[in-house]
């Protein structure tokens, strides 16, 4: 019994870790391949989660938009579409400018999406949230086996996204991207449409983040505006990608699992502390995430698994 309890803790760990792996792979497309700084991951994640929840939940009790009870794959598709379109709109405005502007705008869009999610009761049910969000292949198995099945689904998706990334990386498209990232001017000189390539990376990344949001909503079966909280999504994902090695999809997955492991392990520890200390220690963990990011930026820019063709550090012009 003890053992199986532990085993299922591990299953839960792998499910969340898998969702983070997808987020990391998505961010790796935007930052690692495209050199685009996205500070609003939580926004794309949340908009995907809501899109899927609205489309797939079986009933909305007439309180908000939804109750369409469509199959989960359509939910994922909706999530990718809505998040991708949002990403397109943001990137369209910013790609021709330096990356800092995209960072500011992406934080802005995340904030706007948060406002919409909190305020538009008719759409999202506000702070009450959306319940009864289905998982894929639900009803096939019950109880804890359902988690096992969901874990399998998640990791199948992770592998699919990984293969996609690896393919993209080695395709002419990926090579062009690297050329742009490493030397924008010469890429422009040989006639590459730099803006168009950047736009594509940002949209693909945003769509994948939306899918990750949809999967997370399915996992918890419930969705509330807490999903837009940037700490657990935006910050943690950045630390994961930086630690894992940006530019390399394997590194993205490894970084996600490593940092999620550290995060979960410290949670086990801090949850045992008495009340007051438990809340304080959650701030200490936040602090550690911030410090870890600094450490990785200074000492481990290559990450656990460096990019194959090195030269990630584009020189300052």
């Amino acid at each position: 019994m003890e053992l199986s309890g532990l085993a299922f803790y591990f299953v839960g760990f792998l499910i969340a870790g898998g969702i983070y792996a997808i987020l990391c792979l998505a961010l790796n497309i935007q930052w690692g391949m495209g050199g685009l700084f996205n500070a609003g991951i939580a926004g794309f994640f949340a908009v995907g989660a809501y899109a899927s929840a609205i489309v797939t939940a079986a009933s909305s009790n007439g309180k908000h938009l939804g109750g369409f009870a469509l199959p989960v794959p359509l939910g994922l598709l909706a999530a990718a579409l809505v998040a991708g379109i949002t990403g397109w709109a943001v990137a369209k405005v910013c790609v021709r400018l330096k990356s800092d502007y995209l960072a500011m705008a992406s934080i802005g869009i995340a904030e706007i999406l948060r406002l919409v999610i909190v305020n538009e009761q008719w759409l999202t049910n506000g702070s009450l949230g959306i319940a009864n969000i289905p998982r894929p292949f639900e009803g096939l198995v019950r109880g804890r086996e359902a988690d096992l099945l969901f874990m399998a689904v998640i990791w199948l998706i992770v592998i699919a996204v990984y293969v996609l990334c690896a393919r993209l990386n080695n395709s002419p498209w990926g090579r062009t991207l690297r050329a742009i990232r490493d030397n924008e001017d010469s890429a422009r000189a040989v006639g590459k449409d730099v803006e168009w390539f950047r736009l594509q990376t940002f949209v693909i990344g945003a769509a994948l983040m939306g899918i990750a949001g949809a999967l997370s909503a399915s996992y918890f079966k419930f969705l509330s505006p807490a999903a837009t909280e940037p700490l657990l999504v935006t910050f943690l994902v950045w630390v994961m990608l930086m630690a894992g090695g940006s530019g390399n999809p394997k590194g993205a997955i490894a970084g996600a699992l490593l940092i999620w492991g550290i995060w979960s392990a410290t949670e086990i520890f801090t949850n045992r502390l008495p009340g007051e200390w438990a809340t304080r220690s959650s701030y200490v963990r936040m602090l550690l995430v911030g410090l870890l990011l600094q450490f990785v930026l200074q000492r481990y820019r290559q990450g656990l698994i460096p990019e194959k063709s090195p030269k990630l550090e584009f020189e300052r012009k």
Binding site: S99, Y283, V284, G290
Partner: peptide, 24 residues
């Protein structure tokens, strides 16, 4: 010495550091 975007990322982390210190 690096592209400034690394400093942007760093400041993003510093935001979190400051906030958690305030909470602490």
């Amino acid at each position: 010495k690096l592209a400034t975007i690394y400093t942007v990322i760093s400041s993003f982390g510093v935001a979190l550091i400051f906030r958690s210190l305030a909470q602490l």
